[in-house]
């Protein structure tokens, strides 16, 4: 789930206030009476359930095995004895460092995106300037540029700016490529604000800044949440930018750290799986405590 998951968040833009419509639909679905279950889909779902659960079981079980047990027992056997050794090794390899780096990149990208995208969205919704309109079109075009196609010039830019192998080197392009979707999302959440509100405020003599601060910021809250989750997940999972733009242990982020775990330290599959489990915990926490926001950040409102 890299840029792809992101896009739908953009689509939400097009529909009207996702949270509200989701609530409405849930209510409606509850009232629906389905008397005959769909056996076909049920059987299919059962098969898929196995296909989802087996790798997850493998992930957890392997992370709790000793290295020797992994090589001798089958991949799906129940671990002979449960040990947290693999987790200890994951920490020794530098998991905390990777985690810190990933968090810095995620928050850096979120702050950067919000700082430039919010005022831009305000301008796009309210400005009559042609520059802004053309700019918006450029952002929309940017939706279609695949990041790996421009990785070489980005590498050139970053090395020429003497940013190579720093976390800033990862934050800048990550934020830039998240910008088009974020602007689309924020723009549409601002479009829901009736223009009479803006006009009323401005008739009261409010400056642009006051309008932005007192009206735009509070009203774009749901959009901001969506954008935050979208940018954060993108930065969290990003592999290509760190792969090409960083290399030392000090700047390694989680996804790259997982990969290095494999290529650097040979056969330690349990250690690798322990690191995978650990790396999923922050997102799992988000899923447990903010499921609605996470899912809406991912997809809400794309329906009809």
């Amino acid at each position: 789930m890299s840029t792809i998951t992101a896009r739908p968040a953009g689509e939400q833009a097009e529909s009207v206030t996702p949270a509200r419509s989701a609530k409405r639909s849930a209510a409606r679905a509850g009232s629906r009476r389905v008397s005959r279950p769909a056996y076909g889909a049920g059987i299919g779902a059962a098969i898929w359930l196995v296909l989802v659960v087996v790798p997850l079981y493998f992930l957890i079980a392997t992370s709790l095995r000793g290295s020797g047990d992994y090589l001798s027992a089958g991949p799906l056997s129940i671990p002979e004895e449960i040990t947290l050794d693999a987790y200890r090794r994951a920490f020794e390899v530098g998991f905390l460092k990777f985690l810190t780096n990933s968090l810095i990149v995620a928050f850096g990208a979120i702050i950067l995106v919000l700082a430039v995208a919010l005022p831009a969205a305000f301008a796009i919704v309210r400005s009559k300037s042609r520059v802004v309109r053309i700019g918006f079109t450029l952002f929309l075009l940017g939706l279609a540029v695949p990041a790996q196609a421009v990785i070489i010039p980005i590498y050139l830019l970053i090395t020429r700016l003497h940013l190579y192998d720093s976390l800033t080197a990862v934050i800048l392009p990550t934020a830039a490529f998240a910008l088009p979707v974020s602007i689309v999302v924020l723009t549409s959440s601002l479009r829901d604000v009736p223009s009479s509100l803006y006009e009323a405020m401005s008739l009261d003599g409010a400056s642009n800044f006051q309008i932005f601060w007192n009206l735009v910021l509070p009203l774009s809250r749901s959009g901001v949440v969506t954008v935050t989750i979208f940018v954060g997940l993108n930065a969290w999972n990003n592999f290509l930018f760190p792969l090409v733009l960083t290399q030392s242990m000090d700047t390694r982020v989680l996804p790259l750290g997982l990969w290095e775990f494999q290529t650097q330290y040979g056969t330690d599959v349990p250690g690798l799986m322990a690191a995978v489990v650990l790396s999923a915990l922050p997102v799992l926490a988000l899923y447990l405590f903010g499921r609605r926001q996470l899912l809406s950040g991912l997809a809400a409102g794309i329906g009809k």
């Binding site: 309210r126 300037s129 602007i183 803006y198 400056s207 932005f212």
Partner: peptide
């Protein structure tokens, strides 16, 4: 008479992108 933000508001995003 309505206050409208100018292109300046969009400039950081445009330059950065």
């Amino acid at each position: 008479r309505v206050q409208r933000p100018g292109a300046l508001w969009a400039a950081p995003a445009l330059i950065f992108f």
